[in-house]
Design a protein around this nucleic acid. Structure first.
Lengths: 232, 232
DNA sequence: TAATAAAGTTAGACTAATCTAACAAATAAA
DNA sequence: TTTATTTGTTAGATTAGTCTAACTTTATTA
């Protein structure tokens, strides 16, 4: 199915809203606002997208992407992020310049192009902003945003990934008695150098700021399945 | 001045027609045909482009690009050919696939992008089809005037570019065992229909007049670096 | 629960790019 | 030089995407 740039942008906006807010419920107004058009305009487009079975939507109801609509939206995000990576890595664009150009490039229609670009960039999993790049099947690595250094004194969190994959770091982690899925409580933090005392399995350890910044964690709410914006 | 893709395509078409035919006189019908629209459509657009001072044009008269129109057209051709070069050199697209994708990429709006791409490709002077790439001031290396059909029986020449960029033609060229920079010897020519027997890498092929007219060549003298007036 | 506010929809209009069909001008041919 | 043919123009319609203004439904709150 050949879609116009505009239609593609509506699908992308829908995916982004549900992604970022964790909410699956999108209304006409919110959609319109995110595309900087009037609600009436979005409403018209929704009818069209429903006709094409790209969204599920009943009058006065909430909007959801259909399976195929979601696939298309993921595909556009894939293209967007691959182009950003290209601009950043190969053409030496700066971090903050890539988005605008990628907004245009994401609409270029050629599967071959994007697969070749993917290969050329060595199948990157994250774009320059750290956002995950969907693969050609629309699957993406979840990525974590919060590190142990972001957790407030007194709060608990769960380790989910490491940022630094070096073996020396991994060995250090083990020594502290830490591992994926372990619960960590932040006991105290030295203001001067951010040395942090943590508690893992009832054992206290002190770790450096560098250490804390290389441990991805989920906050207390996310541990309970809430998917907050700051963590994921 | 921000132009639509469509407007850009009209300017490009005008430049291409005058370029390829050597004629400076373009009419509504020819322009429309080259864009695969009806003359009425082209006529409407011409009024718009005249309004913007991108073409010089009076009712029932001939169409010419203005200075600024020409600059914009050259800019689009620059983008087109740089993208073709990128696709061919970096992404390993084949000769005959690049055009279609570049038709889309040429409309991406970012001066920075195209200058960085130019640098990344090491400021190429010719695209994969042998066509010259305008620099950022719209200047380009002379392009070729002589085609295979101009070469006398018994003489040799070197293929340097193609006039027709259609994939069907390019694939035909490949089938004949021909490519950019190949030496061609004209063995014989049928007087009646100009069917020409050529020799490429010791292999003989017979090609039509239409074929021969779409292969740009350099004559024997020019191959040796002489730069004769007829070829360049 | 009735009034008010917020959210969503509809109708009618506009612009850009296209079309068809009818017409006008310029050019070529008899 | 009149006629026929080609070339170019105009008028009116269509589609996609947008708008404003008026209206309806749903949600909130006093």
């Amino acid at each position: 199915m050949l879609l116009s740039y505009t239609e593609e942008n509506y699908l992308k906006a829908l995916l982004k809203i549900t992604f970022n807010s964790g909410i699956n419920e999108v209304g006409t107004n919110k959609l319109a606002a995110s595309l900087v058009v009037k609600p009436a305009t979005a409403n018209d487009m929704l009818k069209k997208l429903k006709e094409k079975e790209l969204v599920k939507y009943e009058k006065y109801g909430k909007i959801k992407l259909s399976k195929s609509g979601q696939k298309i939206a993921l595909d556009i995000i894939r293209k967007h992020r691959l182009w950003e990576t290209f601009l950043y890595q190969k053409l030496e664009f700066s971090w903050d310049e890539v988005h605008e150009v990628a907004e245009q490039l994401e609409h270029i229609k050629s599967e071959k192009l994007i697969d070749k670009l993917d290969k050329y960039l060595n199948f990157p999993e994250f774009d320059p902003h750290g956002d995950p790049i969907p693969n050609r099947n629309g699957e993406l690595k979840v990525h974590y945003k919060k590190t142990l250094s972001d957790i407030a004194v007194g709060s608990s969190c769960k380790m989910v990934a490491v940022k630094d994959n070096s073996s020396s770091f991994l060995q250090y982690i083990i020594k502290v008695g830490l591992g994926i899925n372990n619960q960590i409580k932040v006991i105290s933090k030295q203001e001067y150098d951010s040395i942090t005392i943590i508690e893992v399995n009832d054992i206290l350890s002190s770790v450096s700021l560098k250490f804390a910044e290389n441990i991805y964690v989920l906050c207390g709410d996310c541990i309970e399945g809430k998917k907050c914006f700051e963590c994921q």
